[in-house]
Design a protein around this nucleic acid. Sequence first.
DNA 1: ATCTTACGATACGGCTCGTAGCGTAAGTCA
DNA 2: TGACTTACGCTACGAGCCGTATCGTAAGAT
Lengths: 207, 207
Amino acid sequence: MPPPAGRTGRPRSAEAHSAILRATRTALAELGWSRLSMSDVAARAGVARTTLYRRWPGKNELVVDAVAALLDEQLELPDSGSLAGDIEGVVLRFAQLLERPETRSALMAVVAESTRDPALRERVTAAIVDRQKALVLRGRERARARGELPPETDEAASARESDLVFDVIAGTVVHRALVSGEPVDAEWARRFTRMVLGGLPALTAEG
Amino acid sequence: MPPPAGRTGRPRSAEAHSAILRATRTALAELGWSRLSMSDVAARAGVARTTLYRRWPGKNELVVDAVAALLDEQLELPDSGSLAGDIEGVVLRFAQLLERPETRSALMAVVAESTRDPALRERVTAAIVDRQKALVLRGRERARARGELPPETDEAASARESDLVFDVIAGTVVHRALVSGEPVDAEWARRFTRMVLGGLPALTAEG
DNA sequence: ATCTTACGATACGGCTCGTAGCGTAAGTCA
DNA sequence: TGACTTACGCTACGAGCCGTATCGTAAGAT
């Protein structure tokens, strides 16, 4: 896999690189995770099968990179002016990503594989999880600046808290969309946000 | 797959059935999802490969059944006397299940596959999701009986609410355990429960 | 005793895997 | 310009799994 440093010979084709990632995404959307094969991707990308193995160790790593490229395009956090608005915004953005067939089939699969493969776990964390988490941290900063949340006092407690919030938001949205199989629409995002901010009683109070 | 009704000939071996499911779980724990093969399971179970195909259409369905059997043993909701205690209890029970290597590797994988296969989705829903959801519903009934939650008024709203709570609890625990890769211990369960009941501000209020 | 179904064993074509070896193309550096 | 280094496409390989079919046998039901 190493095209590491001190380059001298023929450089790797950048066109091939993006063509492969693109082919991986369309193949994912068409075939799903289990039926996706390296042979198939190579054929779609118009590239020799060996070229894939020169750049990625296997299917897992290839898919992680292919999906990560999507996140950079899609994940943003529009400043809505309120904490509730920011949460609803990130929820809907994330849900929008989960509507794409390629992410639906890929995300859970790579997570499943990563439970047995530490190297893959790191790759997933760096390429996908951290990108999402950054949004949560940014939103909290804004909320503090507005006075919607108290300023940070204990740094460790603050980190634990944002970890929890991240798991709640990302986990719930994924579960709703992929496990329960129900739509994540604006109305659901509103109710979810109310629960995150006010807890279960606040949710019951009003319809 | 159909051993449907009007039986007359030789019955299917019940020993083989449980031996196969047991072999599937140990193979899952050893190899993980992607490297698990029907051939391997058959060999471990001491059964001909064709016997597996007579009972299950493929790897997906076999694994769902193998994991579902675990849930029946493990999933219960001890009555702790308070809503908070019940939530912490079910969170810890579920987390305990997610510590087993066979469930870790299997759960997300079958969910990933089910996003492309409606029949598999139904199987997952019936065998796994509904079993978990029943716990949430039971806990809510108890809380209402104790007066911790207001009695049901609108039935539709009530169903939406329990769906949301279910996604929040199951989704967050799974995300914490499998994506973030952090332990779900008693201390975390306490903080999570406080957030579910009181919302984000309640969480910040105390350490 | 007969009938029906499950079982084990074996074999098949088709596919994917990961690696290796080759000659050629595309750059870098003197 | 020419030597060097690396990527590329192509072909081939052994191994493994897949899903199905076939066959003779075993185990219960009637």
